[in-house]
Design a protein around this nucleic acid. Structure first.
Length: 199
DNA sequence: GTGCGGATGAACT
DNA sequence: GTTCATCCGCACT
């Protein structure tokens, strides 16, 4: 079943990011359903987090979805060629989000392979925030969409991820964030082959 | 209007 | 480990 909006509207993005591990992310784009188990996330902690786009209360056309009530998507474009998917959490006007960094593909493999121009499964398909968006067909059209919609949603398949199976480490690619770059806010499922490489 | 750098991935050596 | 593809958003003027 789909996660209820109350799941996203809890007030601790770090806790939500860890609870998202083992949940199943689905997209229905061009009438093709794809899905995968979330195996890696990162937390972005709002106006006091220097790595967060909403640091210091920055509110622009791009960052608007972060300020929505939890349970919507925040998709943005980076490096001129990659889309990155975030799950907005917490209440309205509290801009916190969980970045989905990697999934294990389980549904719509044919569509994923077609989008990536591959003919067999390998670990590069969905390991990395840009890679998984391409695999699942996520673009800016999927920005600011409710996770209760029939385009983009997350289900609970009763996959249990114990706290001891969660690997915690500093976030990737945010060293400009000074002391906040050291926060252990990257969460991976230990022993999953589908997480992005350690750096 | 212009300039600059980024929450990256993939294909190289 | 290195390199490059390649462009939007933001902070200026």
């Amino acid at each position: 079943m789909k996660l209820p909006l109350s799941f996203y509207r809890q007030n601790d993005v770090v806790e939500i990011s860890q609870k998202l591990l083992g949940k199943v992310l689905f997209t229905k784009i061009n009438n093709e359903i794809c899905g995968g188990i979330i195996v890696e996330t990162e937390s972005y902690g709002g106006i006091s987090d220097k790595a967060c786009h909403a640091y210091n209360g920055l509110l622009t056309e791009r960052t608007k979805p972060l300020y929505e009530n939890g349970g919507v998507s925040y998709v943005y474009f980076c490096y001129g060629m990659h889309h990155l998917l975030n799950i907005v959490t917490n209440k309205k006007n509290i801009p916190q989000a969980a970045l989905i960094r990697a999934v294990e593909p389980i549904y719509g493999i044919d569509t994923i392979l077609k989008r990536k121009n591959k003919n067999k499964i390998d670990y590069t398909l969905t390991s990395g925030p840009g890679a998984l968006c391409k695999a699942l067909g996520i673009t800016k059209k999927e920005n600011n969409i409710s996770l209760t919609s029939s385009i983009l949603w997350i289900e609970d398949h009763n996959i249990i991820v114990k706290d001891t199976e969660i690997l915690k480490s500093p976030r990737v690619g945010v060293k400009y964030a000074e002391e906040d770059a050291l926060l252990p806010w990257r969460f991976r499922i230990k022993n999953s082959k589908w997480t992005s490489p350690a750096k």
